[in-house]
Design a protein around this nucleic acid. Structure first.
Lengths: 208, 208
DNA sequence: ATAGAAATGTAACTTTTGATACTCAACTTA
DNA sequence: TAAGTTGAGTATCAAAAGTTACATTTCTAT
């Protein structure tokens, strides 16, 4: 486990902290589609992402979801951190976009390290800051962009996360993430294809 | 200044911290409508709100704004904090909703206190958590509610902030905050009045 | 090979929101 | 008090997004 941590966090945490993390944490492998955290879950461990990508979703009052942002290697979920610290239930759902590995840190250690390691403090703050930025970005998208632009932005983000111009997903999936209907997505995708910006295949989209 | 701090933060910070804050900070009075922070401002001081209320706005790419949330006595602006720590420019605008007082703390002290005072650390984390929650709330509003519901929610928030059922504002102002047009707001307000939920006057709205 | 399921295409219609263009009323100020 | 300014009401039209319904295509499992 220590080697895995070194690889991703070697330049972020000091040696001693990495050793401590390794000694108290659990390593967990996950597969694409796994629900790592669900709405209302009571969080007792904070996740650090070592490999893979995760998407963070917000739940509608009655029904439906909305994608907030993706997290990648080296990130943690500040929303979850918030839950840990505040001892409240999870406000979000975390679903694996790809397979990967996380490390789970017990909450009480988190707090202890805040006083003890400056690198940990910096990391935690940076995570909060990054998450605030992503939330702002989500708000910008919702407030200032039409669905066609949101769709494009979504495709670009997704492409970045999987490191490929080929996105394997269905129109329905996209519709869930953007909190709209499948028909709307199909319509807009078709328009994008006609503009020559993408190519559509069954259950996959190719960006140009 | 120390007395003012005691009143709002006496149960949050220990005596010694309050003294330190008092000794290095500036007190600033502001009037309704004052722009306390603007987009792109370079932040060198962190504000603690002692009296009054402030609204935090996000700027559109080309034109227009969107209200993110209000902050009240005892709050600070985590978005600003984020800017301080990250040494980046302000992503938001802060406008005074009412007159009030803030204390401005130099950034370098903030960091120093993080290691030194547990109560400061807790306060800073709580602020982040609260702000994340407000952002989530803003996202919920945008993503899951129609304009009429957003308007109602806005009126309720505003009423809470000014501690009154009487809201003194124009349709145009509301339109700016909700990032829509004056005509739309007038239309929806009229509908609300017909439902008997509010009473409309010139430049003021009365909630029932 | 065939039935059923999943993914997509598309038309027709409604609702919501936005845009434009006036009018009228109330307040302000010279 | 007349003129200008600000706030609000409303009608009409257009665009964006959501809804329903059904057809077609592609995959999957037996």
């Amino acid at each position: 486990m220590k080697e895995l941590l070194q690889k991703t966090y070697g330049f972020v945490f000091e040696e001693k902290l990495i050793e401590e993390i390794a000694s108290v944490s659990l390593l967990r492998d996950f597969e694409e589609g796994d629900i790592l955290i669900d709405f209302g879950d009571y969080i007792k461990k904070m996740p650090l992402l070592l490999e893979g990508a995760i998407k963070i979703l917000r739940e509608d009052f009655d029904e439906g979801e909305l994608l907030l942002y993706f997290i990648e290697k080296g990130d943690t979920c500040a929303m979850t951190m918030a839950c840990c610290m505040g001892e409240t239930k999870s406000e979000i759902r975390a679903v694996a976009e790809t397979k990967g590995k996380v490390i789970m840190i017990p909450v009480y250690k988190m707090e202890e390290w805040l006083g003890k390691y400056k690198s940990w403090r910096n990391y935690v703050f940076n995570s909060y800051n990054n998450r605030l930025k992503e939330m702002l970005n989500a708000i910008d998208n919702l407030a200032f962009m039409n669905m066609d632009e949101r769709l494009i932005s979504y495709l670009q983000d997704k492409s970045k996360i999987v490191h490929s111009k080929e996105i394997h997903t269905t129109h329905q999936e996209i519709a869930y993430d953007l909190h709209t209907s499948r028909v709307v997505i199909s319509r807009l995708l078709k328009a994008l294809e006609k503009e020559g910006r993408i190519k559509l295949h069954r259950a996959s989209i190719e960006l140009n």
